[in-house]
Design a protein around this nucleic acid. Structure first.
Lengths: 323, 323
DNA sequence: CTGAAAGCGCTTACAG
DNA sequence: CTGAAAGCGCTTACAG
């Protein structure tokens, strides 16, 4: 494999000059540039990118942490991130964690070893205080609500948005409202539960643990959710579901069992993915792809030395047929 | 930032010894190992991975090329790939190409520069003869039918499977059959069209260009497809659709317009994603996640020097309610 | 505009 | 079991 030295020899210049040509530096006499270019062609030169990384001290690659790719919400985020990365000529390394702490730590370890220049965390199991220990490691962007001055963050205003949805349900006459979350533990869920409790208080309804469902991500989970609802002694008249896949599964299963939506059960969803439009599911739109793009923009800012920022994306309530 | 030399100094050993400790080599006296470990802790040492890569000549990272992440078929593949990569401790770099040739070339360029040790191509726009020019560049695995001895490949037997589906439709009494593809150009489509033509020939029906639809990927595309079908002067009684998202969109739109499935129109799909089970869509199962995993296994074999292999995954026809 | 030299931080025969 | 030395292939002040 030809290296820069061989090129220099063949072209009759110094390796400095070859490097300059390689990096499009000005101040190279056209004649020498030509010679170098020729030599590179003759020897079929390809730059060894590892040497560049070692010299420069960075890799031009950023990592993305997510629990699992094959869920529209995360696929949407990743799509946005990948689009922005592409236009910036920055590479993406993928860390699929399944919410396993060790894998999340592993990705942070990679940041430390400079395998990646920064890390975008789409969702995590790691508690905030543990993440804090990594704050000096490198730039980190969180796709979730955060006030932490050490990390950038992007999200929708979860408390406000969820409250908005709840008030909407209440305005439609519902007082018995259940909620369905992806994971109770996440920070987003934290805000949603808070909003839920606030809303209940305002209408003087008690908080019932059994009306807060969780561990729901897929359409199948939505089917399960429906049956859980069926089994409930006292049933909510409305469910506020944290993701469209689950809502869709629940809706379709309800229809199969001749439960009328929204009369027997109202469903309000989150995300506004394609399927919710097609099935006519009322939902709170979250622009996942846009969120992915913004997260990358925030990362780029941090990479060039800016301090972390917190960005809040707008949401909107889309009325359709399930409430 | 502490480097290996600093560690050596502090521990009172040579850098060779430090390196040995770092790489778990045998033949290091326990006492010295301890000293080195201590020194590393004191100086908060982190290995510079770029130096390792430069020295070793490889990066422990492989690239994945796909047109767009946010489509269940590709997300499924990627999920499988990521799972296997994780257990092998190999990193993944993502190249979202949108079927743009320049981006596909870019990913191959990265392979050449050793940014990645190998490339898994989930789907591509690049014609085979152009890809051929890159055969010396490094290990490449294709997730599509291929006999090319230069690349490994994994796929289902597209011709056989598609023919199987067609014969199934025919056995149900259909003779007017249309097909709906993602992209006419791909190699998979090539085999499918071939199978389609063969089947038509066998039952003595003519091949009609207007019954071969393409550019169909999403549920929205499925809605569009339904309306195209409606506008057709002469209508197929059955559509064989190459992906579940499109089938789902078509089915739901048909139901909205009181077109009875399968009586007015039969739909046979491909993939067997969750949604096809839930909507009761008859489909040909393709194990995308498994395919992703296998593609990675093939890659690993090539990385350790084995010659390329071609692996064919089984498929199965799942009868449900739409045929 | 150009080159010699130092530096990035590791790995790996080789000799002992 | 251990160390000195060469090597991986670039980049980047510095001096001219």
């Amino acid at each position: 494999m030809a290296n820069i030295r061989k090129i220099a020899e063949l072209a009759g210049v110094s390796i400095s000059t070859v490097s300059r040509v390689l990096n499009d530096h000005p101040y190279v006499k056209e004649e020498k540039r030509k010679k170098v270019l020729n030599a590179m062609e003759q020897l079929e030169y390809t730059r060894n990118i590892h040497a560049v990384h070692l010299s420069k001290g960075y890799s031009n690659m950023i990592g993305v942490v997510l629990p699992t790719i094959n869920i529209p919400y995360f696929a949407g985020l990743l799509e946005g991130i990948a689009e922005e990365a592409e236009t910036s000529g920055i590479h993406l390394a993928l860390y699929q964690t399944n919410y396993l702490l060790e894998k999340e730590r592993y990705s942070l370890e990679q940041l430390k070893q400079r395998q990646i220049d920064g890390l975008i965390i789409c969702s995590k199991a790691m508690p905030d205080h543990e993440l804090m220990e990594w704050k000096e490691t490198g730039p980190i962007v969180l796709c979730q609500s955060s006030q932490d001055p050490n990390f950038s963050s992007i999200s929708i205003p979860h408390h406000t948005a969820f409250r908005h949805g709840l008030d909407y349900l209440i305005s439609k006459g519902h007082r018995k409202i259940g909620i369905a979350l992806a994971r109770k533990k996440g920070i987003n869920s934290h805000y949603r539960i808070k909003a839920y409790q606030d809303a209940l208080k305002d209408i003087g309804e008690p908080y019932k643990e059994e009306w807060v469902m969780d561990n729901l991500l897929t359409m199948s989970d939505g089917e399960t959710l429906f049956h859980k609802w069926v089994m409930l002694k006292e049933k909510p008249t409305a469910m506020f579901v944290a993701n469209d896949q689950v809502s869709a599964g629940m809706l379709l299963e309800a229809q199969k069992h001749s439960v009328t939506i929204p009369d027997d059960l109202a469903i309000l969803s989150c995300d506004n993915q394609e399927i919710s439009r097609i099935l006519g599911i009322s939902t709170i739109e979250i622009q996942t792809k846009e969120m992915g793009k913004r997260s990358f923009t925030l990362m780029k800012k941090q990479l060039k030395g800016d301090s972390p920022e917190h960005f809040v994306l707008p949401y909107r309530l889309i009325e359709r047929l399930t409430v």
